[in-house]
Amino acid sequence: MSAALTFWRSFAVNRGAVLGLAVMLGLVVLAVLADIAAPYSPIEQFRDSLLTPPVWQEGGTWHYPLGTDDVGRDILSRLIFGARLSLMIGLTVVTLALCLGTALGLTAAFAGGIVDVVIMRTMDVVLVFPSLLLAIVVVAILGPGLFNAMMAVAIVFLPGYTRLVRASALSELARDYVTATRSAGAGTLRLMFNTVLPNCAAPLIVQASLGFSGAILDAAALGFLGLGAQPPTPEWGTMLAGALQYYQRAWWVLTFPGLAILITVLAFNLLGDGLRDALDPKLKR
């Protein structure tokens, strides 16, 4: 039995994880095929049908199944195109923060002494600032724009991963199997990535899957302040933020981007849980 098949079997035991994976796959397909799947362009404005309600509500029409926003753009089309950006934001931010944080945390744990102090105190400095404020500062330095916003959010997320990796690496380093591998002659890199890191994976996977949602929301907050995705770019967080003023008379403008974020985040968390369990040999039969 191949390793991939073994992995799939232990993954498929968890129904929620499979559901999460299915939703994620659906979103990815939608994002890739947005040009075909979406009925309209995400930035096309239908000036004669502003704030049209969704189809099942009075006044709704099948032309705009989920209604239109305040400048007459089709919400469904914007959501589908937004999936591209939001998924990319989540993945980029989490990947950046995870890779950098893992490298920094492992370095701090293995090197100890002054290196450890320098890395961890720098992380503490980052942690001291309120996350949004820090992100604003970073964007102010780098200049507004979606990519810089992602960088800023990644920097804000970095201390969490670094501290997590360092803490679990330290507790694993004290265990005898690391000593045994070391006395067999293993180098530092092998000890880091082959011996210690896999045993730190469980909390990291959970943190990463939760961080995905945080990344989308933080990027959205930056967008709301005009520092992230610039209008008319269809990004879920920006859509949500831009529709705040209509929440009393046009609930759909606010609700659907929110639901999209919720469903994506939920799917990703379920997926992360399943991954963590499938990667843990202790939970296998």
Binding site: R175, D176, N199
Partner: peptide
């Protein structure tokens, strides 16, 4: 090692 529960990589 003394502790066989900590000396093998899980």
């Amino acid at each position: 090692f003394q502790n066989p529960y900590g000396s093998l990589n899980p």
